[in-house]
Simulated assay, not measured.
Amino acid sequence: MFNDDINTIFINNEQTIINTINAHSYIVAKSDNVFKNALLESDILLPDGEGIVLMARALMGEKIKKIAGADIHSYLLKEANDKTLKCFYLGASESTLKLIKNKLSKNHTNITFGFYSPPFKDVFSESDNRDMLNKVNEFAPDILFMGMTAPKQEKWVHNHKDQINSKIICSIGAVFDFIAETKKRAPEWVINLKLEWLYRSFTAWRLTKRYIYSTPLFLIEVYKLKYFKKQPND
């Protein structure tokens, strides 16, 4: 299904926003309307978490597969290399972007790459926003990869999508660190056991706190939706 959607995007040549959702972002979105709207108005919203897979099975009887941000990036990068496209990376530090550039340029010789590291702050100024938009639009990428973590990246795209000159906009957050290898993604055997979330929880106290906070709330939400017949968007 994802492959079909992406092929349609390249054929139609229309701007497409790709976001992901997991248990934590679901809980955050319940109290953040801008983030909630950013996710709901995504052109493609992918399940980047076993919690969302569980929710789909429990509420709708659907068997879906987790698609992580790293998987989306790899797929789009292959398409970009096959089609000789332009990719822009917005987010992370200068040093991280340099590592990404050195690594990807060697293995994807058909892609033209662009990079920009925005200021590290909770809220961007109008000047910051103009600088980011100018950098992206001057490059005019076929694919814009956002790496500013959720919900910041999704909200920024949502607020500026009409000003962004890019065919595909894909928010992948921590994947920037995986590409640069400043942080390691879980081994494949851990991913296959559906325990990537547990592996990540041991990599940073910030993520540990996130799982401790979000996981119980999410499971309660699934229970309420299943047994009290509420809808996920209520």
Rank of each mutant, 00 (worst) to 15 (best):
P187E: 02
K161C: 02
A56K: 12
T182L: 03
R185S: 03
D71S: 08
K65D: 11
K135L: 09
K167E: 06
P119K: 13
L76Q: 09
M55L: 15
L97S: 03
K65Y: 15
C87P: 05
T109F: 02
L133S: 10
L104F: 00
D122I: 12
T109A: 12
F176H: 10
N134H: 14
Y89L: 08
G114W: 00
G69M: 05
N165Q: 13
I67F: 05
E188P: 04
H73R: 12
S105Y: 01
K106P: 08
F178V: 06
N137G: 09
F176N: 08
S117H: 07
F145V: 05
A150W: 01
I64P: 09
F115V: 09
G173Y: 01
L85P: 13
F139G: 08
I169G: 02
K66S: 06
R185W: 01
A92H: 06
A92D: 10
Y116G: 04
E188L: 14
N159Y: 05
I100G: 00
C87M: 12
K167F: 00
A68W: 01
H108V: 01
A180Q: 05
L195T: 08
I100K: 05
D177Y: 11
Y89T: 04
I100C: 07
A140K: 15
Y75G: 00
I67N: 08
E126I: 13
H73S: 12
D71N: 08
A186I: 01
M55D: 08
K135Q: 15
L144I: 09
T203P: 02
L97N: 13
N137F: 09
V190L: 06
A174Q: 02
L97H: 04
A180W: 03
S127C: 03
R200F: 01
E138A: 08
L198M: 12
A70L: 10
M132H: 11
K194I: 05
E126P: 02
T112F: 06
A56W: 11
E188N: 14
K65M: 09
M146A: 05
T84F: 11
P141V: 00
V123R: 15
E181S: 10
K121A: 07
F145K: 09
L133Q: 08
K167G: 04
I164N: 06
K103E: 09
Y199V: 00
W197E: 00
G147K: 04
K65F: 14
E196L: 06
D122R: 14
N110H: 13
W189K: 10
N81K: 02
I179Q: 04
T182H: 06
F124P: 14
S171G: 14
L144D: 00
N137A: 09
A140Y: 14
D82Y: 07
L85Q: 12
A174G: 15
A58E: 15
F88K: 06
K121I: 11
T149A: 15
L133M: 07
K101H: 12
A56R: 10
K183Q: 13
K167P: 10
K86T: 09
E181C: 03
S125G: 11
F139L: 10
I179D: 01
P118T: 02
L195D: 00
M60F: 12
M60K: 14
V123W: 11
E138G: 09
T96I: 15
L193P: 08
E154A: 05
L77E: 03
M60E: 15
G147V: 03
K86C: 10
M55W: 00
K152H: 14
